[in-house]
Design a protein around this nucleic acid. Sequence first.
DNA 1: GGTTACAGTGAACAGCTGTACACTGAATAG
DNA 2: CTATTCAGTGTACAGCTGTTCACTGTAACC
Lengths: 221, 221
Amino acid sequence: MGYSDGARTLSVVSTEPVTRQERKQRTRQGLLDAALDLLADRGFASLSLREVAKQAGIVPTAFYRHFASMDELGVALVEESMRTLRGMIRSARSNPSAYTDMIRASVRTLYEHVRAHEDHFRFLTRERYSGAGPVQRAIGFELKLFSSELAVDLARFEVLREWTTDDLHMMADLIVTAMLSTVVELLEARPRDAETDRRIVRTAERRLRLIFLGVPSWRSG
Amino acid sequence: MGYSDGARTLSVVSTEPVTRQERKQRTRQGLLDAALDLLADRGFASLSLREVAKQAGIVPTAFYRHFASMDELGVALVEESMRTLRGMIRSARSNPSAYTDMIRASVRTLYEHVRAHEDHFRFLTRERYSGAGPVQRAIGFELKLFSSELAVDLARFEVLREWTTDDLHMMADLIVTAMLSTVVELLEARPRDAETDRRIVRTAERRLRLIFLGVPSWRSG
DNA sequence: GGTTACAGTGAACAGCTGTACACTGAATAG
DNA sequence: CTATTCAGTGTACAGCTGTTCACTGTAACC
């Protein structure tokens, strides 16, 4: 079957979208990417539907075939970014070292994921507090979930076995907050060189060390 | 007390502006207040010059008599908000208790100042990370200064006497970050009752306690 | 008391915004 | 092969945006 095989291979290599669903999915992703591009140095609230559509290479009215509003696009962006973040903790969990090595490994994982997906982390950290819209609510909700998962992870440690869940949540929140501020530092790092990165990473490690050092002395209430 | 007292009281109460400078200063403040009002549930970037002018009760073009652009208005807002924040640490420094009492007193001071100037704190925490404009740079600069001052304050403690300045800055940053997240929690507190406030305040105290508990065990490097 | 400085006015502008509507053309379904 | 579905188009409109310009009335100045 010469012809048909050749045709199939060609179509696979060039990855041309064939089905209508594929095409639609592709421009939808195009809109998300376009928005993420424009968000490099501005806030989501200052983004216009027309702008995003133009950047994605479609006419403004076609936007509505994919999202009912910019807010909906924003929420989709939160979901996409959160998928990246969850990929990160999956990586962090997969190499379960202990002691201070765990801190070094975790910060290392954070560092690499931030550098690999700067736009997603920039979006999350920027929009987290900037308003009261659906986007902010979605981020707040997801981060709370994230913090809760971390609390469960913490509970597995020997020293934290008999902590109350309330105390574990407090500690998890503190860690998440500290890590998010590290993310911001990485995104705003100037100059953009290896030494600046190393300094930020080391500071992040020291922050975590200080927090963990307090654990053995902790008495609840 | 009859007439004269009554007349004086009246003139004092009505506080009519007389001089031209006073009038100008008053509408300038009106613009700042108008912006702050509009910022209750939106980001600064989504604010328009016309909107602020209307809220302040002046015509759009009169805006330029006070600020060359919205960005300039924003920077002025940062300065005003920072004055509030500095007023807070002055209060905190004025009752110099020690030990865990210091933590309770500091958090108490923070709590009261946040509740007394919600709009200023909301502005600072919201705009801190949301973009790359002059406003964000101004906030970043001021907060870095703020953190440095805290580092100096920390150096006065017995246990922290021989810490390196680098370690002190690391700890100060961690504390500022934790406190700013407490500010956000207070501003977003739902429901708005005394018990929610108490819970947030107690969590803030526990965060600080955990951080300070690590101090005696700290070894630099 | 006459002159000047200047905070605030009002009309006008070009450019952007979200959204309604009727349309086209090609992938899909029968 | 024909009919339908539907992602993307193009036009249009009302409303908002920042900024210009010539203006007015009054506090401040000499």
